[in-house]
Amino acid sequence: MTIDSDPVPATLRWAVWLLRAEAVALGLVAAWLIWSDLTARSTDLTSALWVTAFAVAGAAALWALGGALVRRRAGARAPAIVLQLMLLPVGWYMIQGGLGWLGLPLIALGLGVSGLLVSSPTNRALGFD
């Protein structure tokens, strides 16, 4: 058994926790999409399956990136930041569509997790210092 003498900094712990929370939330959306695909009366099946697969893949990617970051894999930081920055246009278009109550928190979440991932303690923990 090995004991890591250098604990995971709070910024990295929070980033991982938020990435995992996003993965769970997107997994719930994927489950709803699967149910919707199975119970829809008429649909463009190909498009429905692609959207569902995208949600499942996104949830899996977020979960895996969280795991890689907690193991201090520096290569996981850039893809995690890219996924967080993808929340910005999604949030913007939600605001434009009248869903500001959901769009603003998504933008804040994307910027917040990105900030945690580029903070000095996280940089040191991932070996970027």
Rank of each mutant, 00 (worst) to 15 (best):
L117Q: 03
G115N: 03
L85G: 07
T122E: 01
V70I: 14
V56I: 15
L45G: 07
W35L: 15
Q84F: 04
P9Y: 05
A53C: 08
A60Q: 06
R124D: 13
G110L: 04
L18S: 09
I81N: 01
E22W: 07
L83K: 03
A25S: 12
T2Y: 11
L45C: 05
L26R: 10
G91Y: 05
G91H: 00
W35D: 11
N123K: 14
N123S: 14
D129I: 11
V24K: 07
L49C: 07
L49M: 13
V56P: 00
P105K: 05
Q96L: 15
V51R: 12
I107D: 02
G58I: 02
L65Q: 04
A40M: 09
R13C: 09
R72S: 01
L88M: 08
S47K: 14
L102I: 13
A59M: 01
G91M: 03
L111Q: 04
A25P: 01
W50P: 01
P121W: 04
L117T: 06
S47H: 11
M94L: 15
G112S: 12
S5I: 13
R73F: 09
G103T: 05
L109G: 03
S42C: 10
W14Y: 12
L33Q: 13
L87M: 13
V51I: 15
R71E: 13
T43K: 12
G66E: 03
D4G: 07
R77M: 06
A15S: 08
A53K: 03
D129P: 10
L102A: 15
R20C: 08
S47C: 08
L12W: 00
T46I: 11
R20T: 09
S42M: 11
L85F: 12
A125M: 00
P7D: 05
V56D: 02
W92T: 15
W35H: 15
L104A: 15
V16I: 05
L109K: 07
L116E: 05
Q84Y: 07
A31F: 10
A15G: 02
A31D: 08
I107H: 06
G100P: 01
I107R: 06
R77F: 03
G67D: 05
T46N: 07
A61L: 15
G66V: 03
V56R: 01
N123W: 10
A78Y: 08
S47R: 14
W50T: 10
T39D: 07
L19I: 00
I107G: 05
D4M: 12
S119E: 06
P79M: 02
A60D: 06
A74T: 09
A31G: 14
F54W: 11
R72K: 08
L99I: 08
Q84H: 10
A55Q: 05
G91Q: 04
V16T: 04
G110Q: 04
V90F: 10
V16C: 08
S47V: 11
T2F: 11
A61C: 12
A76G: 03
T2E: 13
G127Y: 02
V51L: 15
G66D: 00
L65V: 02
G75F: 09
V16R: 04
L111E: 02
A108T: 09
Y93T: 14
A80W: 03
G27I: 03
T52K: 00
G66S: 06
A40K: 08
M86Q: 11
T43V: 15
